[in-house]
């Protein structure tokens, strides 16, 4: 992306710029407006799902699945299919393979995850380098929010809506599945199906997040907002809301910062997210480091 005023100005010019101009000027750029809208939508989707990921303890799984979708995305591009389809097949397929290897060998689970997702990712790299397709490796690895094509916008919006609707309809059952799978079974829910539903949502959200920040950093979109909100709330509803707010804030400000600094968009978004998490870790009213220290200094009267 070319810097907005030539290469020398941006960093220095930040200081005299009024905040209003800093915010408003980019909005007049069509491509940037589009990046902000799409990034915001993706942030919402990933943030809601991230609450389930952090509560279920699936951060590593999220990382694995988001890498494992690569060959699916490449093949789908090459065959002219929606890339969500390819991502879904390979995302869920990789988890199925992990489960199979875990069951039929003596290798431990984290080892299996490490083996399978790197294998899938490597397959994706080879496919990209050998297949005559319009896939740009750098865009897939690091995201390309500022240069996203119309077709990608349509697909990402469609995926996001599907994920949000599924979460709206099945979210409560998924939450029960995360909290107490045994109870979920005892009231007749099919926990196997819920497991695969959550995996499917993870694969789909990974593809949506891939548009924003690329495969390498998509796990941040799927973990950080939930982790930040988890420190701030003891109820799931407010936790979801806080996760969405922090993710949207991080994504929008990350995009703007990357525009003005001419820095990596994905990097800026994830850096802001990490910063928000650190803030929450220190300042959260009940679970923050300061509050904990304060409690230790003066234990509450019970």
């Amino acid at each position: 992306m070319a810097p907005p005023f030539g290469s020398a100005i941006p960093l220095v010019s930040l200081v005299p710029l009024s905040l209003g101009r800093w915010l408003l000027e980019p909005l007049q750029q069509g491509f940037l407006m589009r990046a902000l809208l799409l990034g915001g939508l993706v942030a919402v989707v990933c943030a809601v799902l991230s609450c389930y990921m952090t509560l279920k303890g699936w951060a590593l799984m999220g990382d694995a699945v988001s890498h494992a979708v690569l060959p699916g995305v490449v093949l789908a591009y090459a065959l002219g299919l929606p890339y969500a389809l390819g991502a879904f097949v390979f995302g869920v397929g990789s988890v199925g393979l992990m489960g199979w290897i875990r069951q039929h060998t003596r290798v431990k689970e984290d080892t299996v995850i490490g083996l399978v997702f790197t294998g899938f990712f490597a397959l994706g790299l080879v496919l990209i380098s050998r297949m005559p397709s319009g896939v740009d490796l750098a865009h897939i690895l690091f995201g390309n929010l500022l240069g996203i094509t119309d077709a990608d916008v349509v697909q990402t919006v469609a995926i996001s809506l599907v994920v949000l609707v599924l979460l709206l309809v099945r979210g409560r059952d998924l939450l029960l599945f995360c909290f107490d799978p045994c109870h979920a079974r005892s009231i007749g829910l099919r926990t196997g199906r819920l497991h695969y539903l959550l995996l499917t949502l993870l694969s789909l959200a990974a593809v949506a997040g891939l548009q924003a920040v690329g495969i390498l950093l998509v796990v941040a979109m799927l973990v950080s907002p939930g982790a930040t909100a988890y420190l701030l709330s003891d109820r799931f509803g407010p936790m979801t809301l806080l996760a969405v707010l922090s993710a949207v804030l991080a994504t929008l400000s990350g995009i703007l910062i990357s525009y003005w600094l001419d820095a990596s968009t994905a990097g800026c978004i994830v850096l802001v997210q990490t910063g928000l998490f650190l803030l929450a870790a220190v300042l959260a009213p009940r679970h923050g480091l300061l509050a904990r220290q304060h409690r230790r200094a003066s234990p509450p009267v019970r």
Binding site: L55, D180, D234, F236, M239
Partner: peptide
């Protein structure tokens, strides 16, 4: 299970007590 005939009360160690639920 589907007809709500069965209730299971788990051991305390099997519950995630940090879960954000009232």
């Amino acid at each position: 299970q589907r007809r709500q005939r069965l209730a299971y009360v788990p051991q305390s160690e099997q519950v995630d007590w940090d879960f954000p639920i009232r």
